[in-house]
Write a protein that binds this DNA or RNA. Structure first.
Lengths: 156, 156
DNA sequence: TCCTAGATAGGAATTATTCCTAGTTCCGTT
DNA sequence: AACGGAACTAGGAATAATTCCTATCTAGGA
């Protein structure tokens, strides 16, 4: 799904498409490309301000809230106490592999579906709406770097 | 594992056990009993202040940070923008079922272990350290209540 | 008991997020 | 194409969350 399609859907849903909102969408969309980097409100604000310098934080937060209610945006958290947001495209449900050192994340193409089934059996009266699966650890690059540091330490 | 054992281990690890830290531990420990409610820093502060009214927020945050580094405390997030902390007891690894309405959580006795294996295969050079699996939805109680609201609306 | 590295209180500073209000604008209707 | 109004925005102020600073205190080893 392209950004333009998202815009069309929003308009269909009766959501006013201001330039600010379009920029927020664009920022979220760009964050999804390549390495899949959910962004903080601050990061999104900086991107939006490149084109519209006067945009206020409030606008970004409000827009993110609006999109979140529409199910277009999801909030994720990588245990560093920083809220991040990412676009949810059709069928774009996915999970994250997060490096505890550099904070970068990568999309995981797996879903603990069988686990969900077991959860539903365990709590039949609970209405499951969504789920998150996040794997934490150290990416190859950061492992390499910490190895270097170790070597230096030893060799001195 | 009892709280006392945790204290012993901490002492062994060379961690100074001040009364404040013990109270933070106690609060975290109590949060684990019963319904499994990870607590916010503010909630923990309130509990600690019942016995030591002068304790500062800084102390709670510092203590949580220390415990987190030791692997004794884990930060969890239920997508409401609120950081929560919970004790990690030996073998106490578990996941959460979270109600999006009342915010209450319940411990899940399932672990997406096979998914982890697949992740490791998918990224052999990534060093997996930990993982989180959280299921969001609506608990029976909240579903009942929203049904009531619906009825009222209809019957008027 | 003494000593001191490490911990604390309390207030100030910083950061993140939301509120408020007057003015602006998207977009359906004409 | 212009109009009208509900919805949106900027900007500053308010609030909440978190961390910093420093003088003082203390847990626990010697």
């Amino acid at each position: 799904m392209l950004l333009e399609d998202v815009l069309k859907e929003l308009r269909k849903a009766g959501i006013r498409l201001t330039p600010q909102r379009q920029e927020v969408l664009q920022a979220l969309f760009d964050g999804l490309q390549g390495e899949c980097q959910p962004q903080s409100a601050e990061e999104i604000l900086q991107v939006v301000r490149k084109r519209y310098p006067g945009v206020s934080p409030d606008t970004v937060y409000r827009t993110l809230g609006t999109f979140k209610k529409l199910g277009l945006v999801r909030e994720v958290n990588f245990r560093d106490g920083c809220r991040r947001f990412e676009l949810v495209l059709q069928g774009g449900h996915h999970h994250h592999l997060v490096c505890l050192r550099c904070g970068r994340s990568r999309e995981l193409p797996f879903c603990p579906a069988d686990c969900l089934v077991r959860v539903q059996e365990y709590c039949p009266d609970f209405e499951i709406e969504d789920h998150a699966f996040t794997v934490f650890g150290y990416c190859p690059k950061c492992r390499e770097e910490s190895r270097d540091v170790f070597r230096e330490t030893v060799e001195v």
